[in-house]
Write a protein that binds this DNA or RNA. Structure first.
Lengths: 144, 144
DNA sequence: AATGCAAATGCGAATGATTTGCAAAAAGAA
DNA sequence: TTCTTTTTGCAAATCATTCGCATTTGCATT
């Protein structure tokens, strides 16, 4: 089991290649996404964005998130059924451990679990398209 | 790995014990919940309910679902970020495989995966409060 | 640098799921 | 049956998100 680490890919190039225009709002949103460690929701992204340019609208944030999601540049999560929270799709797949007290998100990856999931789906006659594994936990008092 | 099977617990007794009144709407909703195999959302429950008593309101469905959830009698899921879907909290814990084409939900349970999750959380210094594992898949063409 | 046009934006209104306020109705105890 | 408290139905409010549309902007082309 390993932690994921953050990378900073050049999205502008990718967007251009996909025939998508590089606008000021998009540049700003992309910047926020690539420079954050957390998993902000649309409203949080919006607030960070208007600090840089107060003409950006919430709709544009939503539209940009949808665009980036379709391009595979970000992932969308709905922890606890709350509003969607986003993260850049850096490197390897990983799952999430959410701190129920703080809302913090810790990323982890386990090949064993991935393999088990495949086996289970196969046994039920299915191919996995994608999956979601979320652990909701609280910092343990006991020594690790 | 095993499938979960359906049981029909006596919720009225439980509700009474919790000091909650047994009303006509609640009885009807409870009946729907205990006699269904699927994981209906509030709207679906509402429609089934007004077939039995057309004076039941959607708010009451929502209120009842919240009540039952707090009592631990049902579980709430937000597959794919869609509307909440409910199921009675029968017997053992289980996870879900969602058929992306039909929306069908298959329940399964794997001790191995549960154990792995515990290990991972412990390694990260957390105790698991609860978790969510959803596999989104498509019926496989290949022989099982 | 100026032009043209499709793509993107901001705004506000629309949508879908869910919650809430409140007066009227029903449940359960006395 | 009466009383008190909980629940209900209804309509309006809220929250997250999307949409319509007139206006602006990116950028390929003169």
């Amino acid at each position: 089991m390993k932690h994921a680490i953050n990378q900073k890919p050049d999205y502008e190039k990718e967007l251009r290649k996909a025939g998508v225009r590089i606008t000021r709002p998009r540049r700003i949103i992309l910047d926020i996404l690539t420079s954050t460690e957390d998993h902000p929701d649309a409203m949080k992204i919006f607030h960070r964005a208007i600090e840089i340019d107060d003409s950006i609208s919430l709709s544009t944030v939503y539209r940009t998130m949808n665009l980036l999601e379709e391009m595979g540049a970000i992932h969308r999560h709905a922890f606890n059924g709350g509003p969607s929270r986003f993260e850049q799709a850096h490197g390897e797949h990983h799952d999430h451990l959410i701190d129920v007290d703080t809302g913090d998100v810790i990323e982890f990856q386990s090949d064993k679990i991935e393999k088990l999931q495949e086996e289970i789906a196969r046994a039920l006659g299915y191919d996995i398209i994608h999956h979601r594994l979320e652990l909701y936990g609280r910092k343990s008092k006991r020594p690790e």
